Computed example of a mutant assay.
Amino acid sequence: MKKLLILLSAIILGLSACTKSNTEKVEPFDAAKQAAEDDAKIQAYIKANNLTPVKDASGLYYQVMTPGTGANATSNSTVNVNYTGKLLDGSQFDSGNFTTSLNANANIIEGWKIGLTHINKNGRILLLIPSALGYGNRSPGAGVPANSVLVFVVDMLSIQ
C-alpha cells in the first residue's frame, strides 16, 4: 500500500509540473501594430531591391513589371496565372499555374483579389502583400510563418 501511495504521489507531482502557470500573459493580437510592422518591412524590401511600386489604398504594394494587353482583370473575372510566392527573405514557399475567380467568395488571399485587378493579359506583376491581406496571424504551413509579408510575381495568362 505504501508503494502505491508513493507511485500515485509521483504521478500527481509529475502531472502538476506540466500545467501552465496562470501568471503567464498572452498578448492579444494588435492589427494596427502588425500593419505598421508589415509596412516598415515592405519599405525596407523596396529600398533594398530598388523597386518603385504603387501602394494601393488597401495597403498592398504592386509594380507592373511587364504591361500586357487589353482590359485589366476585375473582381468578376476568372484568371489563369503562373506565379511564384516568396517571403521577404527570398525563400520560396509556392509556385505553379492556377485558375481562379477574383470574386469575393473565391478561396484565395485578399492580396490576390486586389492585386490581380491591376494587370491585364500577358502582363507580369509584383505583389508585396502585407500579412493582413495574406494569411494574417496564422500559418498556412508550407514554411510560411504567421504574420508574414508575401512577395508574389504573377504572370497573367488569360482573363475571362
Rank of each mutant, 00 (worst) to 15 (best):
I46N: 06
E37L: 10
A40H: 02
A36C: 02
T78W: 02
S9L: 12
A40V: 04
A36S: 11
L150C: 04
T19E: 00
W112M: 07
G136L: 08
G70R: 06
Y61A: 02
G14N: 09
K121M: 08
P67N: 15
P28D: 00
T78C: 02
I109M: 06
M156P: 09
L15N: 09
F98R: 14
D94M: 12
N49R: 12
D39V: 03
A142V: 11
Q63D: 07
L5A: 11
G115E: 13
L13A: 15
A44F: 11
G143S: 07
E27P: 01
K86L: 06
L102S: 08
S58C: 01
Q34L: 00
L60Q: 01
G96F: 10
K25G: 00
M1G: 12
S101Q: 10
K55H: 07
K113R: 08
K33P: 00
T52P: 09
E27R: 10
A132L: 06
A48V: 12
I114D: 02
S139L: 13
G143Q: 10
G68S: 05
Q160L: 13
I125F: 05
Y45H: 10
P130W: 00
I108G: 03
K41R: 10
P67Q: 12
Y45T: 03
A31D: 03
I109F: 01
E110T: 01
A71G: 13
N82A: 14
S77T: 09
N137S: 14
I42Q: 03
T99N: 09
I42A: 06
S75C: 05
A35G: 04
G136Q: 05
A44Y: 11
C18F: 12
L4Q: 10
L157C: 13
G136M: 07
K121R: 04
M65E: 13
G141I: 05
Q160H: 11
Y61E: 00
L8S: 15
G70T: 12
G59L: 03
N76K: 11
F98M: 15
N107Y: 08
T52L: 04
D89P: 04
T84D: 11
L116G: 11
S16H: 14
D30R: 12
A142N: 14
L15M: 15
K41H: 09
L133D: 03
V153K: 15
E27A: 03
R138K: 13
T66L: 05
G111C: 05
L126V: 08
T52Q: 15
P140C: 10
Y83S: 04
V64S: 01
T23F: 04
S16C: 13
G123I: 01
S21E: 03
T19M: 01
G134W: 01
N82H: 11
L157G: 13
F152G: 02
G96A: 12
S91M: 03
N137L: 10
K20Y: 12
Q43Y: 01
R124K: 12
N120K: 08
G90V: 14
Y135H: 11
V26C: 01
I46G: 02
Y62P: 08
R138V: 11
A44N: 10
H118N: 13
A44G: 05
S131V: 02
L126C: 05
L102K: 03
Q34M: 06
V154D: 15
G111R: 00
